[in-house]
Design a protein around this nucleic acid. Sequence first.
RNA 1: GCCAAUGUAGCUCAGGGGUAGAGCACUUCCUUGGUAAGGAAGAGGUCAUGGGUUCAAAUCCCAUCAUUGGCUCCA
Length: 646
Amino acid sequence: MIKITFPDGTIREYESGITGLDIAKSINERLANEVLAVSIDDEIIDATRSITNDAKILLHKWESEQGKHAFWHTSAHIMAEALEAVFPGIKLGIGPAIENGFYYDVDMPDDQVLSDKDFAKIENKFLEIARGKHQIIRKDMPKNEALEFYSQKGDEYKVELINDLTDGTITFYTQNNFTDLCRGPHLPNTGFIKAFKVMSIAGAYWRGDEKRKQLTRIYGISFPKKKLLDEYLVMLEEAKKRDHRKIGKELELFYFSERVGQGLPLWLPKGAMLRERLENFLKKVQKEYGYEPVITPHIGQKDLYVTSGHYAKYGADSFQPITTPAEGEEFLLKPMNCPHHCEIYKHKPRSYKDLPVRYAEFGTVYRYEQSGELHGLTRVRGFTQDDAHIFCTPDQLKDEFKKVIDIVLYVFKTFGFEGFTTQISLRDPENTEKYIGSDENWNKAETAIIEATEEKGLKTVVELGEAAFYGPKLDFMVKDALGRKWQLGTIQVDYNLPERFELEYTGSDNQKHRPVMIHRAPFGSMERFVAVLIEHTAGKFPLWLTPNQAIILTISEKYNNFAKKVGNKLNISDIRSQIDERSEKIGRKIRDAELQRVPFMIILGEKEQETNTISVRKQGEGDLGTMTVEEFIQFVNKEVEKELEK
RNA sequence: GCCAAUGUAGCUCAGGGGUAGAGCACUUCCUUGGUAAGGAAGAGGUCAUGGGUUCAAAUCCCAUCAUUGGCUCCA
């Protein structure tokens, strides 16, 4: 007999060799039908595997991450079987579960191409296999037998995978007519899967290596109930409604013109107003924190970037130099503001008493992004960073870093970004030649970041090998409506540019010293920040930020003059408003204003004119009743104040 | 850059080898109304661009450009 400990602490005794599934059955039959996998002493295994020792058990159902993982992993195998059936001769790569579903990378036979027209065939075959309720059987095989199996099958990708495995025995899982190399765990049988859909196809390089063959990646998702699939699809539709590209169009915020060029956003008046307000917001915060504005040109001599090291690192993959017609001098569109700011630092001798120096600029930079990577406002070729560079002594580094964290956190709080994650990017210790600068400086910088985040109580994920080539960094990431992660705020320590630009200050010892630099951008870029903000708010911007805070809707044209008077009063009090003077019915005007997401609608008719009041309606909520213009102005000002509270 | 799909009016989209369609938006006129679409008429497109096949191409084929979803990349 063995002792099994349940999560609630109860202990039960079972025969040795019992399976997780049987244990579930011993509790009740229904539970047994829902158990997808089990954890035994924190190791996740098939529910059908025998347990022979005393252990802690955790039963994974659909509701748990691990349960979903097993569910989707098994689904990937079934999809592979379906693909083999629909496309004989197909070769399989890998097929893991992912955050939302799973994918399988395959090499299509001969010159066959997989397209969305094949989705239905794959789905039907998949469901046929699933409905067969085939047992899923685990089997160990010695490495040489495994190699033999796949060599015979002609699947060179699997052969390569097995060759890279260090274990002597390889595990396989079989269901119906399909066997796949896999560590597991898997569901007891295929019948758990009731709904399946192929989501999309994409090219994917074998093992993520650009130089190797591109396989076809098929993304799919599956569920234990048809209803869950329907709900998932509805959710995707809802997410699409928040897409910043769609809302940007609807609200006339920005636009891309083919003639201007891809990845080069044009800000329309309303978008420009919004952006201007964002900039002013940050300028005000930065002023409090002792930043000084600077302005630098959009191009600089190529030599500037040779000095900074950017040219050697990125020159070939960037917009190429522009040259002067007579002398042939080469200039680069600036991909970063920092070299310019370094030159500003250098324009006069510095004393330790001057530090820290904090130069801020909304600097527009241009980077050649690969065409396939461009995406709305989140990934563009010309964008404006809310950039600043802090030059300080090594002793000041940690404090300065912490102050920057404060700014980023204030910004995020103001915009209601709660679901952000923070990542510390450090060097890849195995591959140090990718980075410029000495080991000693890198270690100092990495320590400063880690300590500053700890002291600020940030929960961070540390990623090795994700650092910029010039220094480690702390990034703040936010997810967009479709679940894609984007980096917004960034704080980067740099010991290298001061070295390359020979930046100096005179210390109290009257000796020359090298300052440390911090690059930072709380928004990241205006473009990306606005994009994420649109998706976060679904276009319903905070009152202080939104292009029009109020729109005045007249019941009929007779009240247009009264409307102008009200509009003037709002204008004098810096409340941004517009008048809808069209000869439309009030219902229509309200509808249009609602769709434009104008926070307040002011309705003016006979009643209001006679009593010199206004009727206020709130977007998304409805009628707030009557008040005087003065009351409304006060109300709006109070709301704005609340929003900007620290 | 690579793989796949898409490109028809300002927007959303239907159609499809034989003279280009809808709804919304726009213009004009009627209507002057009370909290999410009042009515009528009109105007608007070399069907992304360039080649090819064909008596005939928006439609079929090829290339290019752009967009979308991924991959790789991301100072």
